[in-house]
Design a binder for these strands. Structure first.
Length: 573
DNA sequence: GACTGTCGCGCC
DNA sequence: AAAGGGCGCGACAGTC
């Protein structure tokens, strides 16, 4: 697995210590999984899970020291943990979210790079530091367990660490399984929108036709539509008073060039983001294998690197089709974040609205706002910190009806504006603002501060406040989703147990239902069709369980939109 | 030629 | 319709 030599696996709780030759790891892990159901403790799931999966071995449980160490290190919930050592060992790399935000937290941050919200300092990759010994792993695991136990809410923190670790396993498994992707369907979508695949260096026919029309309407025969700067100049020369080439601005103008230009931009986006080149690069053997990055963002949402799995446009989802004899179970949590807010704030009026299937409709029925659209915009505005436009105008109405919910997000915003951390339900904390942020605040409080200094400081304080306002809701929603996902994984393993024993020597994902996609509040299971109903039940049960794990019997429901289908495209509500 | 910053836009 | 949170990515433009 990792070259030659001895490797070590641990389950300190079970007193289990596996030491064997590298070549035997997969077999030994498989044996112990069957016999002892261990919780493996390792530095980084990314070091082990891919090769184990390649060898046909799935691990039921693990503790990922890297991800859990990152949560514990920055959590306000462990701030009062007394004598427990808070320093992580040098062999434990920072998590991906910290790699982005780490420079902000590090006292020795490099020079100020300007007013960016985040500063970048890529941490070491999984293989760049020396491997820890078994004794190192035991010491670090003990430290993390002690820190969790000494935290403000030990049960919540233990749940978060377990969910985060399960997420790391699932991320590896999603990559291993791949999303079923029908190349022929994708190609048909592209040809219908763009025309036949053009030779290298040529634009698709539909884009050429639209470009001709735009140039004619703008009276700019040599215009390159792909250059924002040239395009903006040409638009203004034609009397279209836009400040950018963004489509929401263009839509406001009633000029014959606008319609073909918007069409051109839509096609250009499809071509560059998910065109033939994407298909060639990312779809192999009818599978799209994204690189998921568990714990990849500050709020605990995942990130992906490569392939753009977080932004698969609706137009190409038709290519996600189950294998013959198999089905997709597609599920997403409806209106997850507003429901999380209601439960988190224990706001009785908002929780009442969160009891029905359509929370926005319930808000209208309660007489808070006039239309469902207004309810949606107002609620999103409350969570994101909108101050202007329709959204900003509607927020005060919401605040009168749901004072406790509003107080929760307002408090989070004030904390952020003051430079304080905020923390999710289970204990994940926001990063501290970057050094440049603190410097901007300090500059504004100097006696010789200029109006520009003060404006800049106020603006960056509010920016950070919007981030922390959203953090508690988005981060807690991510915790719900992780618990949901982990529950689904466990239940699928039970469903597939009989099948996979029958196929013990075959590929891991060949015969039993398995997760193939996850996106914030949405998941897809690929399953033999005869098991689809049982999978659907498992997905629903897991959602109910996630609600109970986070909020006990709080009176908020987390309904799913769920479909058993052959194609992702037909699952859209 | 390699790198970085910005824009624009897709997703939640 | 508007432009408030979180992302990734490709294209362009400017810089070295």
């Amino acid at each position: 697995m990792r070259g030659a030599g001895r490797v070590e696996f641990l389950d300190p709780d079970a007193g289990l210590h596996l030491e064997c030759d590298a070549a035997d790891v997969a077999r030994e892990v498989a044996r112990l999984e069957a016999d002892a159901a261990p919780r493996w403790v390792w530095r980084d799931t990314r070091e082990w899970a891919p090769a184990l999966l390649d060898a046909g071995v799935r691990v039921a449980r693990c503790h990922d020291l890297r991800l859990c160490g990152a949560i514990l290190a920055s959590s306000t919930a462990t701030a009062g943990a007394g004598s427990v050592v808070r320093d992580r060992p040098h062999w434990l790399p920072v998590g991906p979210a910290e790699a982005v935000l780490g420079a902000a937290a590090a006292p020795a941050a490099p020079v100020d790079r300007g007013p960016a919200l985040f500063e970048v300092d890529p941490g070491p990759g999984p293989e760049q530091t020396e491997s820890p010994s078994a004794a190192d792993l035991v010491v670090e695991h003990d430290r993390q367990v002690a820190l969790a136990a000494a935290s403000d809410r030990p049960g919540a923190m233990r749940l978060l660490l377990a969910a985060e670790s399960a997420g790391a396993l699932i991320a590896a498994e999603l990559h291993g399984a791949g999303l079923p992707w029908r190349r022929s369907v994708h190609e048909r979508v592209l040809e219908e929108a763009l025309g036949p695949r053009p030779p290298v260096g040529r634009k698709p026919a539909r884009m050429d036709e639209l470009a001709v029309r735009v140039r004619r309407e703008l009276d700019a025969p040599a215009l390159r539509l792909d250059s924002q700067a040239d395009l903006l100049r040409a638009l203004r020369a034609a009397g279209i008073g836009v400040d950018s080439t963004a489509k929401w601005e263009l839509r406001e103008h009633d000029h014959p060039a606008v319609a073909p230009l918007l069409s051109y931009k839509r096609l250009a986006r499809l071509l560059t983001a998910n065109g033939w080149a994407w298909l060639d690069e990312w779809v192999v053997d009818e599978r799209f294998r994204a690189d998921y990055v568990a714990g990849g963002t500050a709020t605990g949402r995942w990130a992906t690197s490569g392939g753009g799995a977080l932004q698969l446009p609706k137009a190409v989802r038709a290519a996600v089709v189950a294998d013959p004899g198999w089905s997709l179970v597609v599920a997403d949590a409806a209106q997850l974040e507003p429901r999380v807010l209601a439960a988190l704030a224990r706001d009785p009026a908002m929780a009442a609205a969160g009891r029905g299937r359509d929370m926005y409709r319930s808000i209208v029925d309660a007489g808070v706002v006039a239309t469902r659209d207004e309810a949606k915009v107002a609620l999103l505005g409350a969570m994101y910190g909108a101050t202007t436009g329709d959204s900003g105008r509607l927020v005060p109405q919401l605040a009168r009806a749901y004072p406790r919910a509003m107080a929760l997000v307002d408090r989070a915003a004030r904390d952020g504006e003051a430079g304080r951390q905020v923390t999710t339900l289970l204990g994940r904390s926001s990063p501290v603002p970057p050094r440049s942020w603190h410097e901007a605040q300090a500059a504004a409080s100097q006696p010789d501060a200029t109006a520009v200094d003060e404006r800049r400081a106020r603006s960056s304080a509010r920016d950070w406040g919007r981030f922390t306002r959203n953090f508690v809701v988005q981060g807690t929603a991510a915790e719900w989703a992780l618990c949901w996902l982990a529950g689904v994984r466990t239940r699928l393993a039970e469903l597939g147990a009989g099948r996979s024993r029958a196929a013990a020597s075959g590929p891991v994902f060949e015969r039993s239902p398995h997760l193939v996609y996850f996106l914030h509040d949405e998941l897809i299971v690929h399953t033999p069709s005869e098991t689809a109903d049982a999978v659907a039940d498992a997905v629903l049960e897991s959602a109910a369980e996630a609600g109970r794990l986070l909020f006990g019997e709080a009176p908020v429901e987390f309904p799913l939109d769920l479909a058993v289908t052959e194609s992702y495209a037909s699952a859209d509500a």
